[in-house]
Amino acid sequence: MGRVPKASSYIGPGAVDVALEVNGDGVSVHVPPHRTLLDTLRETLGLTGAKRVCDEGMCGACTVLLDGEPVYSCMTLAVACAGHSVETVEGLSKDTNLHLIQEAFIEHDAFQCGFCTPGQIMSCVALLKRNAAPTGEDVLRAVSGNLCRCGAYPNIVAAALSAAKKQARR
């Protein structure tokens, strides 16, 4: 056991300032290091699109994009997002125009209760960024970390495939 390093090199455990980008805007939040990104989005920033369900990285309802990649925001510390960019379902639409994936979810009735939907949508957005021409199998893999208890998967796959086709035509 070595000497405990100087406290000045650590921040916290009390609240600290964290500057990050959320849906294109620079924001600064004052949160303790143990606060998750999910709780920061929902409780500090009032962005309740990402849902708190299992709160342990099992269900995917809290999925957001961190630097364009899908992550579980319940298993991500807000303090670790300093200097990074976060995108939530609230950031997808521009003015009154829905994102292609959102339109496709409506068109294909890709939800029933809707609670998992923001997470499903963010996973599909991430998939189309990585893979512009996914197969149905690719979509299933992409949303297999997003549990849907209503069983909307066939329509989610149809929605993602149709959004990919529309994206290709643009």
Binding site: S9, Y10, I11, G12, P13, G14, P32, A80, A82
Partner: peptide, 16 residues
């Protein structure tokens, strides 16, 4: 709650 550090160098990380 915990204290948090995000070092940029390996030597610094080892010290922390």
């Amino acid at each position: 709650p915990f204290a948090y550090a995000r070092p940029r160098a390996v030597t610094e990380a080892l010290k922390l």
